[in-house]
Write a protein that binds this DNA or RNA. Structure first.
Lengths: 333, 333
DNA sequence: AAACGACTAGAAAGCGCTTTCTAAATATTA
DNA sequence: TAATATTTAGAAAGCGCTTTCTAGTCGTTT
């Protein structure tokens, strides 16, 4: 591997000059510049990014933290982040947090020790305080799909309340009156906001909110099944079901089918997130789309602005929208 | 951020000594070692990985190249690679190749310019020659799910022929005799091997191979649909269908349903790969499992051995196995 | 034509480590 | 006890860049 020194030698200039033409910051005599360019080509020279990083204390690398990698939702996120960042010649270092405080902290430490210039995270377990402190003391942070008090510009988030509202209103418009709800963990703000939207839709329609029709799940497929079973066991009839994410919807869906119900006639189901497999389930799932890829892209652009002086426009709030497929149907009665 | 120099000062030793206790390579007086450890703790010192890399020309980073990030299959791969590598305190830099020669080469160049110590790739478009040369001249390479002539130890691969064989034999055992096949792109070795296995199963059963019952797809969901339509248009009856991957199987599945067929009675379908959504489709897909996570883990371990002197046992060849679900059923007749 | 200012190029320091080389201190042997 | 071998610690060079500082060149002004 040739070094900048060899380029300088071959071009007959000092290495400062080579550095200057490489970085294009200061002005360099045209003739010299051409000599340098020629030498660079001939030697097939590539600057050593490690040395460069050491000299200007910048690694051009961004740490990305996600709870897991093998889920469609985070795949979409990663894809968006990677392509946005690579277009700017930055590289992404990934780290998974497993949805657990300790592991997430570990992952952050790991990323910090790797001298990342910034962090983009979909952090589920870390507290607002921790994130705030991190952003202040160590390095810039962008939060995807989350709102942190005190860090408005660093966050991208979805109007989850509206999403929950849309799901339930859709069912109301189809004539359903008895609508059950399987929620996500209530300590997660997105889960509680979605539920809140559900309740608002009910209230607006002049319908009561029956806590017996609400089950608290944990966002897992299994809890979709458990939730449906439990709700049915309570013996309060319902003709439609809203699930706070697609995984639970899928669990409920197949459980219902296993129970011999015919879908969507016997039960209309709405999911949330519109992940890849939402249109693979049968009946194809009506759901609320979560523009995770766009949010991720915005987070990346925010970092590009903040750390590398770019000037992209960034959007912080995103609107969910209803995706009507075949798992919901008009309620006759 | 404290530097090694400040640690040395506080501990009253030279920085060489600090470096020695940090790396634990040379022996250091117990008393001094304790003083250093104490200083490290008090200053909350963390070695600067960039400086370290510059000094020993090693970045402890491994580039990972995949065709895309937002597909379950590659999510599994990434997950396995990340966890294996992080356990060894290495970090992974990701890059996507989009299944295109130019983009993949670009990605490799990008990774090289980032001074990765090695590359782990699921390269689809790059030629064997390119990979060979890369491995020889630039940096060690591990290929996931691929066999490259001349690089046996660097590859992990699946017995695709056996996979295709298993799929078809399963259908034969269920009494099917007229079995259609939707293949992947024939220029991809996995696709042609799977097809080969299918043919072997047919031959072993004394059945002819009818080219009219074979459609060449491109592994996309859309081509599952197109393939089924085309096969049916050929007017040669078949009671079962093997698809060379789950995406096409899913496409065929929903197409068949849209056509009003009742599944699996009217048509048994087998997929390949056993991706996340295989059990989300309806009827749940019978498929051939592809242990991509294990292969990925092995590739990571191979690199750990080769580049960092570890001594993990690594397996290079993997056997597929049949996962029987509900999309296949006995053929009465 | 002399004096000044504006550019441009090179020298050298420094980024924070690792590692070789040297010297001192200790242990070993005759 | 003297001479040698063995540890162990520190000094210093070097990894490949960026950037400040200095000096030199050229052009402008009066």
């Amino acid at each position: 591997m040739p070094t900048i020194y060899q380029v300088a030698e071959r071009a007959g200039v000092s290495l400062s000059t080579v550095s200057r033409v490489l970085n294009g910051k200061a002005s360099v005599n045209k003739v010299l510049k051409e000599r340098v360019d020629k030498a660079v080509k001939e030697l097939n020279y590539r600057p050593n990014s490690v040395a460069r990083s050491l000299a200007n204390s910048r690694t051009d690398s961004i740490g990305v933290l996600v709870p897991e990698l093998n889920a469609p939702f985070f795949g979409d996120l990663m894809q968006a982040v990677e392509s946005t960042l690579r277009a700017a010649d930055k590289h992404v270092i990934i780290s998974v947090g497993q949805n657990c405080v300790e592991t997430e902290k570990d992952a952050v430490e790991f990323l910090i020790s790797r001298n990342c210039d910034a962090l983009i995270m979909h952090a589920e377990a870390l507290s607002d305080e921790y994130l705030l402190e991190l952003n202040q003391s160590k390095l810039p942070v962008a939060l995807v799909n989350r709102q942190v008090e005190g860090l408005p510009e660093a966050c991208t988030s979805l109007d989850n309340e509206k999403g929950g509202y849309l799901a339930t209103r859709h069912l109301l418009e189809l004539g359903h009156k008895d609508i059950a709800y399987i929620s996500g963990p209530k300590d997660k703000s997105d889960a509680s906001l979605r539920l809140q939207g559900h309740k608002r839709a009910l209230s607006e329609a002049g319908l009561p909110v029956d806590p017996q029709l609400i089950f608290n799940g944990d966002y897992s497929e299994e809890d979709g099944k458990v939730g449906l079973l439990e709700l049915m066991a309570r013996d309060i009839p319902f003709t439609a079901l809203v699930c706070a994410n697609d995984w639970m919807a899928s669990g409920a869906l197949s459980c219902a089918r296993d129970l011999g119900m015919s879908l969507p006639q016997d039960l209309s189901i709405v999911g949330f997130d519109d992940v890849v497999f939402a249109h693979h389930v049968f009946p194809r799932l009506t759901t609320v789309s979560n523009p995770i890829a766009e949010m991720a892209e915005m987070s990346a652009k925010y970092i590009l602005n903040k750390v590398y002086g770019q000037a992209n426009e960034v959007q912080h709030y995103f609107e969910p929208s209803l995706v009507v497929r075949e798992s919901t149907v008009k309620h006759e009665g």
